[in-house]
C-alpha cells in the first residue's frame, strides 16, 4: 500500500507501523464520574466496519508523525491522510 503523507508525499506502507482505530485519540477524562466505564469502552470496544475506517499509523521509518488514515477496509482505497496531532487538536485535545 501507498500512504500519501501530508508532509512527505507518497510513502510505502512498509515504512509505517499500524496501531488501530483513530478513536484511541479520544482518551476519556480520568476524573469523570464514570471514568472506569469510559476507559473500558475506550480500550476494548471498537467498530469493525466493512468500508471506511479511520485508523492510526506511525511513520516509524520517516518523520515519526502519527497519521490518521481513512481507508476502505474492503478495497484498501485510502481517501484521506491527516496528521494525528491536527486531528487531536480538532477533537479538543490539548494539554
Amino acid at each position: 500500500m501507498i500512504i500519501h503523507h501530508p508532509l512527505l508525499g507518497p510513502r510505502d506502507a512498509q515504512e509505517f507501523v499500524y496501531l488501530g482505530d483513530a478513536s484511541l485519540i479520544d482518551r476519556p477524562d480520568w476524573q469523570a464520574e464514570d471514568a472506569a466505564g469510559a476507559f473500558h469502552d475506550y480500550l476494548y470496544l471498537r467498530d469493525n466496519p466493512a468500508g471506511l475506517h479511520r485508523e492510526l499509523w506511525f511513520h516509524e521509518q520517516g518523520d515519526r508523525s502519527w497519521l490518521v488514515v481513512t481507508r476502505d477496509t474492503t478495497t484498501h482505497e485510502i481517501t484521506s491522510v491527516e496528521l494525528a496531532r491536527d486531528v487531536a487538536r480538532a477533537r479538543g485535545r490539548s494539554r
Binding site: F58, E60, A88, R89
Partner: peptide
C-alpha cells in the same frame, strides 16, 4: 526501546498535543 518511544510519541502527538 523502540516500542516505548513509539508510545511516547503517541501520547505527545495524539493525547496531549499542546504539551
Amino acid at each position: 526501546a523502540v516500542l516505548v518511544f513509539r508510545r511516547m510519541e503517541f501520547a505527545r502527538q495524539c493525547l496531549w498535543p499542546d504539551l
